[in-house]
Amino acid sequence: MKGLPPVLITAIVLVAGFALCAMQFPNIASTRVVGNLLTDNAFLGIVATGMTFVIISGGIDLSVGSVIGFTTVFVALAIERWGMPPLVAFVAILALSAAFGAAMGAVIHVFDLPPFIVTLAGMFLARGASFLLSTESVPITAPVYSTVSDFALRLPGGGRLTAVAIIMLAIVIGGALLLQLTRFGANVYALGGSRATASLMGVAVGRMTVKIYMLSSLLAGIAGIVFSFYTSAGYSLSAVGVELDTIAAVVIGGTLLTGGQGSVIGTFLGVLIQGMIQTYINFDGTLSSWWTKIATGVLLFAFIALQQGLVALARRPVAKRAGAVS
């Protein structure tokens, strides 16, 4: 419905890029590689879904990487040292992270502070707290971890759709439906259009802000659990800088950084593009993995320039009208 053209462009970039990769390394075009790509980027896809809501509503959440890090440490310690059953540990950390997000949202609304500052504080807080829990990597040996890691749907062609990839796909689809079909979703767009106007039109801006940041932190918590499945360990330094990868995926997916426009599907495509670049570099073998960052940077520039162009085009007739009047 909204922001279709940028999403289409993202899709074209993904398909064209994939085709180029496949031409050079035919093996890339296999379910095995695609399945691994989904698994490797599952946590990123989950956290980026939450970030999409935040950015469309006109905000930003810099704390997600730290929340992931904290979650892995908390889960590892809870299971291995404190003897909690894994399920209880998961519920506890999800409740904790949701409360953390709600608190950030409340602070942003009540004190009318920029989300950038509040979530930056949240980022330091969560990262610091995870160091407080443990400074070293804590391996997780609980049986449920190996069970989940071993679980996978067999894809034709030898690929595996792992449990974490399935969780990620479910969250992406659920997020897309929530954003496009519900009153909550419409209000997220409304907030991104203009908080003041949305408030005048009857949207409960404060409650929405709390809910949006709560959703983002909750998904960061889930991403943290997924990350701990992925690495079978909890480490306070894990997922450093992931908030920036996440923002990049959201923007490459066609979501306007200033809010009001975007989609979860676009974000998912943005995640896939980042994963694709990483995969290409792995296949090449001679390139440093830091080339992923460089390619992401270039793409980010291109998409921001593109969006500015589109926005300018959309505004032009209005500007002309206003000019004729004054």
Partner: peptide, 26 residues
């Protein structure tokens, strides 16, 4: 004082959209 990024219909019915099963009846 409306939201230019939302559809005309959403602007008319923001926060009071017709709903069924928690989903906006577009």
């Amino acid at each position: 004082n409306l939201l230019p990024n939302l559809s005309v219909a959403q602007n008319l019915f923001l926060d009071r959209q017709p709903m069924r099963f928690g989903v906006v009846r577009e």
